[in-house]
Computed example of a mutant assay.
Amino acid sequence: MTTQPRITVIGAGLAGLTAAITAAESGARVTVYESHRTAGGRARTSEGPYRTNEGPHALYNGGPHWTWLAQRDLIGPLAPLPPREAARLRLHRGGTLRRTPPLAMLRLLRRRPEQAPVDSDFLTWATGEAGEAGARAAANYAAVALYHHDPGSLSAAFVHERLRRAAKLPPEAHYVRGGWSGMAERMVAHAWNLGVRIETAARVDTLPETGGPVVVATSLDAARRLLDDDTLRWDSGRTALVDLAVRTRKGDVFAVSDLDAPGWIERFTAQDPTLAPAGEQLVQGQFPLAPDQSKADGVARAERLLDLGFPGWRERTTWRRDSVATGRTGAVDRPGTTWRDRPRIDRGNGVFLAGDQVAAPGLLSEVSFNSGIEAATLALRAARVGGPGRVDLNLA
Rank of each mutant, 00 (worst) to 15 (best):
A276M: 11
A270C: 08
W264P: 03
A255Y: 14
P273D: 01
L282P: 10
G263D: 11
L259D: 02
T274K: 14
Q284R: 14
L282G: 04
P277K: 04
L259E: 00
Q281D: 11
W264F: 04
T269R: 12
R267M: 08
G263H: 15
Q271G: 07
D258N: 14
Q271K: 11
A255L: 10
A278T: 10
S257L: 12
G279S: 05
P262Y: 11
D260F: 00
A276K: 13
D272C: 08
Q284M: 10
T274R: 14
F268H: 15
G251N: 00
W264L: 07
R249I: 00
D252L: 06
S257W: 15
L259I: 00
D252A: 00
T269C: 07
A276T: 06
P262I: 00
I265P: 00
A261T: 06
F268W: 15
R249N: 00
K250Y: 06
D260Y: 02
R249P: 01
G279K: 11
V253L: 10
G279A: 05
A276W: 15
E280I: 06
Q271E: 08
I265S: 07
R249T: 02
T274P: 13
T248Q: 12
D260P: 11
P277G: 01
V256I: 15
P273W: 13
K250V: 03
A270R: 12
L259A: 01
F268Y: 14
E266L: 12
R267A: 03
L282Q: 09
A278Q: 12
A278V: 09
D260E: 03
K250L: 04
T269D: 07
L282T: 05
P262L: 08
P277W: 11
Q281K: 08
T269L: 10
K250T: 04
W264R: 07
E280R: 11
F254S: 03
L282R: 11
S257H: 15
T248M: 08
R249L: 04
V283S: 11
W264Y: 15
G251T: 03
P277L: 03
L259Q: 00
K250G: 01
A255D: 08
Q284K: 10
S257R: 13
P262H: 05
D260G: 03
V253D: 07
V256R: 13
S257M: 10
Q271P: 04
P262C: 05
V283L: 15
L282I: 07
D252P: 09
A278G: 09
V256H: 13
P277M: 03
